[in-house]
Design a protein around this nucleic acid. Structure first.
Length: 452
RNA sequence: GUGAGCGUAGCUCAAUCGGUAGAGCACUUGAUUGUGGUUCAAGUGGUUGGGGGUUCAAGUCCCCUCGCUCACCCCA
């Protein structure tokens, strides 16, 4: 039992894991910026009212999952359970509607919901999201989805299917809501208590029930498709034809009803295998009323949020294997005096972009070499009195188990070249600027799968 | 919020009907005075999550509690 455990539903990410997260985040930044998105960083803390008004009082998020508390002046604050509302708030606050439209923003960071943790669900979780604000067209919907799919492909995901649906415009929703209530009212006894509540508060949510008896009832229930207004129908058709043209695979899923109140028209989701029950890694949709509801301009918008925790859990092994952080070179000084020489050499290597660590242990070389091996280093440079006297260093290749005496003047260039060559094969599909100092790999892990 | 399962060495786990806690890996040391990874030998390591109860005797049975995990609900 820990004396000081972490807070339930939160976790620490150690370097072997956080390096993967960093690569995913870098990829998102690169891909999204190629589409003209800029990063927005909003506070983790917002007024509770923001989420109550936008996400919806009838949702579980607002009803029972928010981390809400009063500050010292009695104001009700909430740790953000999602970010679309916050981005919309910032958009209104900063009058971004007066800029050339659409405004394209992405964000990433921690979010909080008070739920029982399980696989793929944490109380502190992380989202990467993007919002395109100020354009009504189906083309924007398609571009947003295309960008999202492109991002996931960069990470090595294959065969992910986009689930697509429409919840219609306001007119549609009102008509359909009425139709649903009319249909279910006489059947209320056959509904679960949960669904009876839904019938009052948010009838659309009955559609995605998992209760088999209720699914039977749904067969004869009015279809959302039949209530779609002409405009909604046209919009949905536009999204679909644009996605077809862009080569995005999707499946229309009539059961897909996003839970948040602010969604209109297009909604979509991406699920992944191997995540257990919490398999949605992305959710998104259009929210044409949200900005106006917040007292801002009457502008439409669309966006999505990626569950980073779940994304990383389902990340293809090929991507994970490329994410290593061990410095490739380790310098071991055998006596006190060469230690300073080792530090100097380390600086020279780093100046050329070669990641190098000086071993400061004062024990025997045996122990130092062991540390080097365990660190995942590819090369060890040995500096002792012998080497100093000859103005050279011993360069040991830990993979090959071979070593040679290299003149001091040549060692930096030699390592720089060797590591550069090794990296070129691995770098494909990875971030520019990561070329330097690419490590040799983790202990116990196959080397060089990324090559060729 | 509801339900189920599980807490034994740093890690993964074992321990028969209740009988005085053990293995693999890891770690330390040595074989090797300036050479890791392989091999061999030796060694360190435990309040069996915590508290209470039953019993001659509890890791094992009972109660309480804390924690973790999975699932429901819902969502990323």
């Amino acid at each position: 039992m820990d004396l000081m455990p972490n807070v339930k539903g939160t976790r620490d990410l150690l370097p072997s894991e956080s390096v993967i997260w960093a690569r995913v985040e870098e990829t998102a930044r690169r891909v999204f910026s190629l589409y003209g998105y800029g990063e927005i960083r909003t506070p983790v803390l917002e007024h509770t009212e923001l989420f109550v008004r936008t996400v919806g009082e009838s949702t579980d998020i607002v009803g029972k999952e928010m981390y809400t508390f009063e500050d010292r002046k009695g104001r009700s604050l909430t740790l953000r359970p999602e970010s679309t509302a916050a981005v919309a708030r910032a958009f209104v606050d900063h009058r971004l509607g007066e800029q050339p439209l659409p405004v394209k923003l992405f964000y990433m960071g921690p979010h909080f919901r008070y739920e029982r943790p399980q696989k793929g669900r944490y109380r502190e979780f992380h989202q990467i999201g993007a919002e395109l604000l100020g354009d009504p067209g189906p083309a924007s919907d398609a571009e947003v989805i295309r960008m999202l799919v492109g991002f996931l492909e960069e990470l090595g995901f294959e065969d992910l299917t986009v689930l697509l649906h429409t919840v219609g415009d306001q007119e549609t929703r009102e008509a359909y809501r009425a139709a649903l209530v009319e249909f279910f009212a006489p059947l209320a006894e056959q509904l679960s208590s949960e669904s009876r509540k839904r019938l009052e508060r948010n009838p659309l949510r009955i559609l995605d029930t998992k209760d088999s008896a209720e699914r039977e009832l749904l067969i004869d229930a009015p279809k959302l498709e039949d209530s779609l207004s002409a405009g909604s129908r046209e919009h949905f058709a536009g999204v679909r034809s644009a996605l077809d043209r862009l080569g995005v695979k999707y499946r229309v899923d009539p059961g897909l009803v996003r839970g948040l109140d602010y969604y209109t028209l297009t909604v979509f989701e991406i699920v992944s295998e191997g995540l257990g029950a919490q398999n949605a890694i992305v959710g998104g949709g259009r929210y044409d009323r949200l900005l106006a509801d917040l007292g801002g301009p009457d502008l439409p918008a669309i966006g999505f949020a990626i569950g980073l925790d779940r994304l990383v859990e389902s990340l293809p092994a090929a991507f994970r294997d490329r994410c290593t952080q061990a410095p490739a070179v380790r310098l071991i000084a055998i006596d006190p005096v060469p230690k300073l020489a080792a530090m100097e050499l380390g600086e020279e290597l780093r100046a050329r972009g070669v990641a190098a660590v000086v071993d400061f242990g004062n024990d025997r070389m045996k122990a130092a070499l062991k540390r080097a091996h365990r660190s995942g280093a590819r090369y060890v440079l040995l500096l002792g009195e012998d080497e100093l006297a000859k103005n050279a260093v011993t360069c040991r290749d830990l993979n090959a188990g071979e070593q040679s005496l290299v003149p001091r003047s040549e060692i930096v260039g030699l390592l720089h070249n060797r590591l550069r060559n090794q990296i070129k094969g691995q770098i494909k599909g990875q971030i520019e600027g990561q070329i330097e100092g690419q490590p040799a790999g983790q202990p116990g892990r196959q080397r060089g799968e990324g090559e060729a």
